[in-house]
Design a protein around this nucleic acid. Structure first.
Lengths: 299, 299
DNA sequence: CACACAAAATGAGTAAACTTCATGTTATTC
DNA sequence: GAATAACATGAAGTTTACTCATTTTGTGTG
């Protein structure tokens, strides 16, 4: 198979111009070059592609077949070619986001809604519950941006801090622990703890608060959605640990309040991790900027 | 635009094989050649196309875009490429037939029905009432085969005789002229002549019979379909001139008979005209053979 | 952590393909 | 039938793609 796009482009030009000479000009080639090129094809297929003896020279059935192919194929090729060029400039691309924490939806969705207005061509998706580590998925090209709070440096990847947060205990106004200025691990030993349905090691409240003090809550409950967790906290008189960004408007509606974990509070930073090669792409930086400004995004 | 099908083929192989080395083997290239080729593309688009650091190496979003294009485009290209190769062998092609005489439908349709069974891939069409000469249309590649009874030799075209025919006068059994063994031009001077609706010069009865004797029929009627012409001959007690092949089974049904034109009868030959370049193609020869054997085709 | 192994990148030389230039051939026009 | 226009052809030059040899990178192992 010697057929190349070049041949299709030539045929299209020949058909358009009605003569080799003019087609060659349009293609920035010499007439001779075109003649040679077509002859190669004709030898390959062992059939003429156009009739030389008619005034606006016309294609043979074989030539028409190829022209037909050209009309199908070339526009698509040009579309993708253009996309890829813009892709490199960073004005378009794929943005598959992996998030480790369910709570991130609370700020992510509004941020993405806003982002899509500015970057309409970017292909967006959110991936939850990957079969392997998000970082691995990032390296394998299955996702393009990982949002998480831990930072395990890795070559070819880079971390962009988005914003700091504080994980706080959520409880009702009239909860016994509401009387304290801050809570300690052992305060939760007789409590019902409501969490997202993920492994314990991926929940800060266990890995950074309860397990170091070797404390186990009396009961645990799981719920996927933040709204349901808050509901359960209200109705079960349980407690939950959520990042501060979750707890703004919804708080007063549910007659809820928050307390720091430990005297100092439990603080963390949320990072966006991307591949080094794509870090500078405009559409990536655009997302990171939008995430940092999430507070303004609600307006 | 430097993108060529070769690049798409390479990307597809890389994706399939999961490594440059194996892909190169499959493409009958060296690993180095592939590496260079991809690098050229990556420089052109200014973005990597796949990640080298994963075990089964994986494509970047940009690479996936191209792969997607490859999956769309390559099968179509291969289909056409294959078709063209067979085309040269003559097992497939386009067969647009131009006919000058309406009566040809009578034998052409059954012949084509039979032909299509043997040459299912050939694209068939029948063109009537072209804006210019069928021969011109043939030279311009608008049609591929012309059926007509006159033979104006032209370079790059060739004529294949199909079969001889005799144009005979059609009339009812009880028509006054039925008493004669043959009719002369002046016999038609007081008759109603039913013809196909085409120019007189393209009707043999005028150009070869009436006009040389400077005779004009009393009345003329036109009808597109042979069946209608026969009907008019019956009901109007008119006459028509039709080739003998039309007049076989239908004759007795309409209580019609035929007489020769002139003492010798008016004979002609039907030719299939094709472009010299396509004459030897199997699918062309197949049609010509089928037309010659039209009598057997009805069985 | 060094080692070995596998796989991709690199660089220089070579072969192939494409293009150009000059010229020949063919078809059409007046 | 000469003139013109358009395509074909052949040889030479240039660009492009490929191969070979080698280096670099990444991966897995003792």
């Amino acid at each position: 198979m010697i057929l190349e796009l070049r041949h299709l482009r030539s045929l299209q030009a020949i058909q358009q111009c009605g003569s080799l000479a003019r087609a060659a000009e349009q293609l920035h080639l010499t007439q001779s070059a075109l003649s040679h090129q077509i002859k190669t094809l004709e030898n390959y297929y062992d059939t003429p592609l156009f009739l030389r003896s008619t005034k606006p020279l016309s294609l043979t059935p074989a030539g028409l077949k190829l022209l037909d192919l050209a009309h199908h194929v070339l526009p698509e090729v040009e579309r993708v070619d253009g996309q890829l060029h813009r892709h490199a400039q960073g004005s378009t691309g794929r943005l598959y986001i992996a998030i480790e924490c369910h709570a991130c939806f609370e700020w992510l969705i509004p941020v993405l809604d806003r982002y899509r207005q500015h970057w309409p061509e970017v292909e967006i998706d959110i991936r939850l519950g990957l079969s392997f580590e998000p970082i691995t998925a990032l390296q394998r090209g299955e996702v393009d941006l990982v949002i998480s709070s831990d930072r395990r440096p890795h070559k070819s990847l880079c971390f962009e801090p988005l914003f700091d947060y504080e994980a706080r205990l959520v409880l009702t106004h009239d909860h016994p622990l509401a009387g304290k200025a801050y809570v300690l691990p052992q305060d939760l030993a007789d409590q019902t703890l409501v969490t997202y349905p993920v492994e314990r090691k991926r929940l800060d409240v266990f890995s950074r608060f309860l397990q170091p003090a070797n404390v186990e809550p009396a009961r645990t409950r799981q719920a996927e959605l933040t709204a349901i967790i808050l509901l359960l906290v209200s109705t079960l008189k349980g407690v939950a640990v959520l990042p501060d960004w979750v707890l703004r408007e919804t708080m007063s509606q549910h007659r809820l309040t928050t307390r720091p974990l430990g005297e100092e509070g439990m603080h963390g930073t949320l990072y966006a991790t991307v591949r080094e090669t794509e870090r500078t792409a405009d559409y990536i930086q655009g997302f990171i900027k939008g995430a940092k400004n999430r507070l303004n995004a609600d307006t």
